[in-house]
């Protein structure tokens, strides 16, 4: 190779904040490695939630069909959860403001909006904690019926995503309070923002499918008239 480019492409732009090389060589796509990584990770997370949501949809009406309460229609408090969904959506707005203010090198505003976003995230998580304990007191647990199992698993894993996001935002806030966040680190806040928005969008889907779309009515008497696939499968089960 007689022809060559002198470029320290070794670690590309894949650096953490606060270590002093501003002159990174361009990447092939012109996009920062970390941003591309977050997009690719979110693609993966889409499949993760798609699988969980598919599981939930499979079991959505099963407790009603089997007559094993408590039933979702007795438990779900749509006005309450609408408020906490609104809080989560609002946090996407404050997240945008946090990214925007760092882009303008307004560190003070960045701190405020990072704090506000994490606060709203914590409010959402508290709402979820309240909801979970309420349901538990009304007799719904992971073991009660298929609704309990799939509801707690889906919303619980979404809540875990929110909790990780809050931890991440608080870490950024902490770094900025130590003076470690400046305009050139805008990418760090931006990718946290990408993650945060994604988690919000997933919640919109979960909220619609879990809360808003009506459930089959709980059976008045016994609920085993229908010969669903799983009932037929029971005959195949070698285990009894």
């Amino acid at each position: 190779m007689a022809q060559a480019v002198q470029a320290g492409q070794a670690s590309g732009a894949g650096h953490d904040a606060g270590h002093g090389h501003a002159d990174h060589p361009p990447t092939s796509l012109g996009l920062d490695h970390r941003k591309l990584l977050m997009w690719a990770f979110l693609a993966s997370d889409c499949v993760f939630f798609a699988s969980l949501i598919a599981t939930f949809m499979l079991y959505r009406n099963r407790s009603q069909q089997l007559g094993e309460g408590p039933f979702p229609s007795e438990l779900l408090d749509i006005p309450f959860t609408s408020v906490s969904a609104g809080v989560l959506l609002l946090s996407s707005f404050t997240m945008v403001l946090a990214v925007g203010s760092l882009g303008r090198n307004n560190i003070r505003a960045t701190r405020i909006w990072l704090a506000a976003t994490s606060f709203l995230g914590v409010v959402f998580l508290s709402g979820q904690y309240f909801e979970f304990t309420e349901f538990y007191h009304e007799g719904l647990s992971l073991q009660t019926n298929m609704f309990g199992a799939s509801f707690f698993t889906l919303t619980g894993l979404h809540g875990t995503h929110v909790a990780i996001g809050v931890l991440w935002l608080l870490t950024l806030l902490f770094v900025s309070l130590r003076g470690g966040l400046s305009e050139k680190d805008a990418i760090n806040v931006e990718i946290a923002g990408l993650y945060w928005h994604f988690v919000d969008i997933v919640w919109i889907i979960i909220f619609t499918l879990v809360y808003l779309i009506p459930y089959q009515d709980a059976p008045s008497g016994e609920g085993e008239q229908e010969t669903e696939a799983f009932v037929r499968l029971w005959h195949l089960l070698p285990f009894v």
């Binding site: 993966s44 997370d45 499949v47 993760f48 699988s51 599981t55 698993t153 894993l157």
Partner: peptide, 16 residues
């Protein structure tokens, strides 16, 4: 990246 999340979920449900 796109196939493993399915088994991740399958294994989470199994572990549950």
């Amino acid at each position: 990246v796109l196939a493993f999340p399915a088994i991740t979920v399958a294994l989470i449900l199994l572990s549950m």
